[in-house]
Amino acid sequence: MLEGIFRILSDAIYFNLIKEDRYMLFIDGLKVTIQLTVFAAIIGIIIGLVMAIAKLTNNKILNRIATIYTDVIRGTPSVVQLIVIYYAILGSSQLPKLLVASLAFGINSGAYVTELIRAGILAVDKGQMEAARSLGLSYAQAMRYVIVPQAIKNILPALVSEFIMLLKETAVAGYIALDDLTRAGNIVRGRTFDPYTPFILVALIYLYITSMLTAFMGRLERRLRQID
């Protein structure tokens, strides 16, 4: 009995990981997933910062643009956005697929980051801006020295949680034939005809990374709370 289980397990490992160096498919896929997530996160933060400022200023046109952006992105599925951006951009250029996908996921994540930053800044008590302005600080100085340092405490943990979401979202990158971690599982399944093992492995890898990020977020939150 025990021997039977052992046999099944070792077969599963042999066929899904060892034979033809298939573990390399998972490792390469993981690399793509991580690169994609990191690039998209950076693009998302930059877009999010710009759009949050656009939403918070008194300029009607900028407000409008930022609102349309966040509404469209948050109101449509990310797979659809990915495919549209992929064909829109790749149709006219020879950019590497990884870059196009990073851009697509960055634009997607940016909408959520915009809202996080905006909410984080609005959560700072109104009296803080008033006190700063009453001392003669300009709006920009008040933002820089008084509002943003306090808003960061609200924003950072939420940002980590957004990037955990982003990491999982990138699993649809296979739609544009990008060989990410999820697609590696698919490729191995196609070779071994074992529907379970490759995806259990894939799931475990995602779970490992997300739980590390979650633990990091917890530590960060505690740290930030201590400063108060």
Partner: peptide
């Protein structure tokens, strides 16, 4: 900003910068 320097203000809720 320059004129406000002439006028100090103290609020009911203090509004000290907590950080």
């Amino acid at each position: 900003n320059r004129l406000r320097q002439k006028v100090g203000m103290v609020f009911q809720q203090f509004n000290l910068f907590p950080h």
